[in-house]
Write a protein that binds this DNA or RNA. Structure first.
Length: 515
RNA sequence: GUCCCCUUCGUCUAGAGGCCUAGGACACCGGGUUUUCAUCCCGGCAACGGGGGUUCGAAACCCCCAGGGGACGCCA
């Protein structure tokens, strides 16, 4: 409260509160992104400020337009809309970093001229070797300042020869960076802990650290509310603000969402994609409410609240710092409560129909079952699994003439791993994957598919399981296969090790086929 | 390995030095309602990581330890 008072009346008397969410479009829309967006949005709107969305797509190799679309769609589905963004524009655009290259180049030139940044011509090989030596000697890995010794002539010569280079920032060698975290108070980090961060990559695109600071300043962001994982790089950011002579924003690091084992929430251990929760039939109101109770509570203790109610009562200083475990059981209870209390019969019918009979999905399913049914009443028993979550299966379902339960488990685990690595989600790629797995295992495709039929459709006989995986998508397929592995007794750490070895063999097996 | 952050029931949390015999919710266990089940209602189980201080008084403030997590990329 005191901090707030000081900031509002002394440090930045007129500044309108502006916060942002800055997702990187490199994968599925993550619940962690929605979580941080929710708190940023509540904070901004409560102060009659603005919440903006910026796309951080400076990693050209991993960013995709598809992922950007999915993220925007998922955030909107949850009711997290923004005042400015790549889709709606605004006075501080463009809001996609890949379209702001000129801005970054101008700013990097300033640092280069002032000697606050320098060109580094070191090869990836040299840096790898350096890191390896440092790790071996139990030193903190980091750049050794090699190119700092280059003379102006050396630099000009290398530039003329078009030797690839990056731009790194200079960092003080002594002293410490002291900054305030809104939730934690003073944090001190010694400058010797801070690496000479690359600011501009050899593809001339900025790194996160650089683009983020430049954009946050130009977009007039007053409060940076982000995940705890960024605490250690905050000194780099503060140093950049200082170099440019800019007023840094107020930093506020939120606790990280956790898996049940307390590690940072990850899709290997827990479904993290917002689309998964949508496909499983969670209501957006329930999911966003649930995220709002991670590290935060309403002052009156109520647990069911809308995003507007949260915003009205919001107080960021009441965020608790222990990393909250994402507990699906409590989410289930909340979602049920929303269905029971917020939907009357008519609304329920409408919501259900909208969820179940998505026309794109239906048009893919219909061809699979139309020729297999004799009565319309056969449809639900045959294809009900398309509208289900996890299936009620048991280890008895996996009994098979040729395959042992252990083999079933191996097939299932290898299939998930392979599905996760699929560069493109098409029916053909799923089929190809099953074919090669069957060749690799030296068994017929029919047998390879058996455990997948049980895991995905719940029965040994059903519509094409390959099409089913393709239509259900990675999130649901992964959840069902994982559930099946659990039903078969799960995998021990020892099993995982062996399976990973088998996976490597499988990948070796795949290589010649791809030539 | 180095640095940083965190620590209340199994889980989400309340707690601003005396309202704490530590409250609520999920889960779990009992009971009631219900033709079954679910819902709903009632009850129960269950926590301040450890050790030192400060104080008349500590879950709360300070220190140490332990445990957990995170960061150390031309990823974000």
């Amino acid at each position: 409260m005191i901090d707030l008072f000081r900031d509002l009346f002394f440090r930045r008397p007129m500044a309108k509160v502006r916060t942002r969410i800055a997702p990187s479009p490199t994968g599925d829309p993550h619940v962690g992104t929605a979580y941080i967006a929710l708190f940023n949005r509540c904070f901004a709107r409560q102060h009659e400020g603005e919440f903006i969305l910026r796309i951080e797509d400076t990693d050209q190799t991993r960013s995709t337009a598809r992922s950007e679309q999915d993220i925007l769609k998922a955030l909107r589905w949850l009711g997290l809309d923004w005042h400015e963004g790549p889709d709606i524009g605004g006075p501080h655009g463009p809001y996609r970093q890949s379209q702001r290259s000129d801005i970054y180049r101008q700013h990097i030139d300033v640092l280069l001229e002032n000697g606050q940044a320098f060109c580094c011509f070191c090869s990836a090989e040299r840096l790898d070797a350096l890191r390896a030596t440092q790790t071996e000697n139990r030193q903190t890995p980091g750049y050794d300042g090699h190119c700092l010794a280059l003379s102006e002539q050396d630099i000009q010569k290398k530039l003329a020869e078009k030797v690839p280079y990056v731009v790194r920032m200079r960092v003080p060698s002594e002293g410490e960076c002291v900054f305030q975290d809104r939730l934690r108070g003073e944090i001190r980090i010694a400058w010797e802990q801070i690496d000479m961060q690359v600011l501009m990559k050899s593809d001339h695109l900025p790194t996160y650290h650089f683009a983020n600071v430049v954009d946050d300043h130009l977009m007039e962001i007053t409060h940076v509310i982000r995940g705890e994982e960024w605490i250690n790089s905050t000194p780099k950011h503060i140093l950049l603000y200082q170099h440019f002579g800019w007023q840094p924003p107020q930093f506020c690091h939120m606790p990280l969402l956790r898996n049940p084992d307390k590690s940072k929430l990850s899709k290997r251990k827990n479904p993290t994609s917002i689309s998964y929760y949508k496909d499983m039939g969670y209501l957006p109101e329930a999911l966003i409410n649930y995220l709002g109770m991670m590290g935060w509570t309403m002052p009156d203790g109520s647990e069911k609240f809308s995003i507007d109610e949260m915003q009205a009562a919001f107080d960021i200083d009441r965020v608790s710092l222990g990393g909250p475990v994402f507990d699906v059981e409590k989410l289930d209870w909340l979602n049920g409560k929303y269905i029971r209390e917020n939907l009357d019969a008519e609304a329920f019918a409408q919501v259900f129909a909208q969820w179940a009979f998505d026309s794109a999905k239906i048009s893919k399913i219909v061809p699979l079952l139309k020729d297999r049914v004799e009565r319309l009443s056969d449809v639900v028993p045959l294809a009900g699994f398309f509208l289900s979550g996890l299936l009620p299966i048991s280890d008895a379902d996996f009994v098979h003439k040729q395959l042992s339960p252990a083999q079933c488990k191996t097939i299932l685990q290898l299939t998930v791993w392979q599905l996760e690595q699929l560069p493109e989600w098409t029916r053909e790629s799923v089929e190809q994957l099953c074919q090669t797995l069957s060749q690799f295992m030296g068994i017929k495709i029919r047998e390879t598919l058996f455990p997948l039929f049980i895991a995905i459709t719940g029965k040994a006989v059903s519509t094409s399981v390959i099409d089913a995986i393709y239509i259900l998508g990675l999130d649901i397929s992964r959840a069902r296969i994982r559930h099946a592995v659990e039903v078969l007794g799960g995998v021990s750490k020892k099993d995982v090790k062996e399976l990973e070895k088998t996976l490597r063999d499988l990948q070796k097996f795949l290589l010649p086929a791809q030539d």
